[in-house]
Amino acid sequence: MNFQDMILTLNQFWGQQDCIIAQPYDMEKGAGTMNPATFLRALGPEPWKVAYVEPSRRPADGRYGENPNRVQHYFQYQVILKPSPDNIQELYLESLRQLGIVPEDHDIRFVEDNWENPSLGAGGLGWEVWLDGMEVTQFTYFQQCGGLECRPVSGEITYGIERLCMYIQKKDSIFDINWVGDVTYGDIYHQNEIDYSTYNFEVANVEMLFNLFEMYEKEAMAVLAKGLVQPAYDYVLKCSHTFNLLDARGAISVTERTGFITRVRNMARSCAQGYVNMRGGLGFPLIKDESKRQQALQEFNEKGGQQ
């Protein structure tokens, strides 16, 4: 199965489970969790099911295309099921079957791994899924997001699709993955890895990036003050990526580091609260059962929003 077919298969499978098949969010981010389709939608009482491919950028992980397993840009396949259904593990295993991985032929384990993202104020408990000893998926029950308790809890499944594909295609290097026809992953992305590694580590204009961080942060808070949650969140994502670039450039000293993370977290937290208030103001329209919707609204109003 080629890389492209894997994505199509997963889209097909999760689409059949009534997941919205979303497109990647058009902004740089370190992980699929930061897509508003996860970070914001995991908040509040409304149900939500979504699946999407997310390009993930981690400037510090670049290796100039020389390491067969490590790159600064890769893809995650992200699924959110909210509330987490009782058969979530079975669904996941079924999706592996669809990819041609017969669990009976392998050793599949759910090994404890808890996930935490301090700059998003988010964390959860779950596992990394091992396929014959290789970590291929991160499986998390969100407990907190943007500093708020998640009620209901979202189940998050994050496939490392390159890893899975390398396994399925028996390739030792990410760049040898067959994408489609005779085109490889390396054909498409290898030069990018070299160029971005060079840019991230050597070229990025540090002074400009520091300025941008300040500007983005100001804009995020100003936009949020006008109650425009997602436009504000866009600037939080920009701040986060700018911070990652500065970090890769080695421009952030140890003492400054926690300060920057706290600034991003505070913005993310404000967006999270703003989002829940906004959805409450709309009457939580995604809750289609009228009595449940009324109940959720009543709880929301009793708390006076989630301030």
């Binding site: 009976e104 032929d105 392998h106 050793d107 599949i108 384990r109 396929l131 014959d132 000893g133 290789m134 396994y167 030792d172």
Partner: peptide
Amino acid sequence: RNGGDRRLDLVAEGNEKVL
């Protein structure tokens, strides 16, 4: 392995690759 001896060769191969 959490399981029987079916396709132990595949399981061994996968683990060897990770290591």
